[in-house]
């Protein structure tokens, strides 16, 4: 008995020593900052690092700020379109790569290239492709008689232009995860279905889709969370003076602008709280939906 207690005591000591650095780090780097940001959103800074409590003033300002509504809308549009298109295309590529074909490795490498490229570099080359005067896209379109699309400065196209870059750069990542899920489906299921005379479409909907639903769910969730935080491409591709800015800026961009470009961190903190609330609501909805359409076996 004594020996077991001693062993336990030693185990506890090891356990705390082993989780200690991570827990301490998370408290200093994440938990404290989370609470501090929350606190900041109820204060007003006078620019000298001294802040005073102003209650809900930042939230009242936020509720009356059309830029916040527009940025929320932009973020939602970006998320819905890029998740729908991005996950769909990733699934198509994964299904194609799951066929018995040659050269899988080469295809996989190529589709994955954007994932390992710096977003700033990706943004620059796309900004060049989209260039209204000398860009490759407008040249190709001019061959078909369409001319002068101002991809990144026309409020009607700018957000979709950013979505395209977002989708293009995420396909490889999601495809790899989905392909791993597809490869876990036993071949015998398909063989049995073939014996029953099922065609490729029938097989996809009655075997592939239900079997891959946990992986698909994971991909959808991570893509939504990532898309809600879109910033890099907007920051790199839309200049602050661009007239399309108001129709492309996301909540995170607005947070960055107020906190670090205009120095109003209290208001920035309030804006990022909106993102937190949206993220939590979507997470809750996902948990509910998950039970409905994900088949864990």
């Amino acid at each position: 008995m004594m020996k077991i207690n001693k062993r336990k005591g030693k185990d506890y000591a090891w356990a705390y020593a082993m989780v200690g650095p991570t827990i301490l780090g998370l408290i200093i780097l994440n938990i404290y900052p989370l609470l501090k940001s929350f606190y900041l959103s109820f204060t007003k800074s006078n620019g000298f690092g001294i802040s005073k409590w102003v209650g809900l003033a930042n939230y009242e300002r936020l509720a009356a700020d059309p830029a916040v509504y527009q940025a929320t809308l932009n973020t939602m549009i970006y998320t819905v379109v890029s998740v729908a298109a991005g996950v769909f295309l990733s699934l198509v590529v994964a299904v194609l790569l799951n066929e018995k074909i040659r050269g899988k490795g080469i295809y996989r490498t190529i589709y994955f290239l954007p994932v390992v490229s710096a977003p700033a570099a990706i943004a620059m080359v796309w900004r060049w492709l989209y260039n209204a005067d000398a860009g490759l896209f407008n040249y190709v379109l001019s061959v078909f008689g369409i001319s002068g699309v101002h991809w990144l400065t026309d409020p009607k196209t700018a957000l979709m232009a950013i979505v395209i870059v977002g989708v293009w750069s995420m396909i490889g990542y999601n495809m790899v995860i989905l392909l791993a899920g597809l490869q876990e489906i036993p071949r015998t299921y398909y063989e049995a279905a073939e014996l029953d005379g099922a065609g490729p479409i029938r097989k996809f909907f009655s075997i592939t889709l239900p079997m891959i639903s946990p992986t698909l769910f994971f991909v959808v969730v991570t893509t939504i969370i990532g898309s809600l935080q879109v910033f890099d491409f907007i920051f790199m591709m839309i200049e602050p003076s661009n007239t399309a800015m108001q129709y492309t800026q996301s909540l995170v961009y607005l947070f960055y602008k107020h906190s670090f470009m205009m120095g109003d961190r209290s208001y920035g903190a309030a804006i990022v709280m909106v993102l937190l609330v949206i993220t939590l609501i979507i997470t809750a909805i996902q948990m509910k939906l998950q039970k409905k359409w994900v088949h864990y076996d």
Partner: peptide
């Protein structure tokens, strides 16, 4: 409880940490 801290941190958008991290 301590593992709860890990899970909570994972669910929070990283931008919420930036201002205080900068201050630190």
């Amino acid at each position: 409880f301590l593992f709860g801290i890990v899970l909570v941190t994972m669910m929070i958008p990283g931008q919420l940490f930036l201002i205080p991290q900068y201050d630190i």
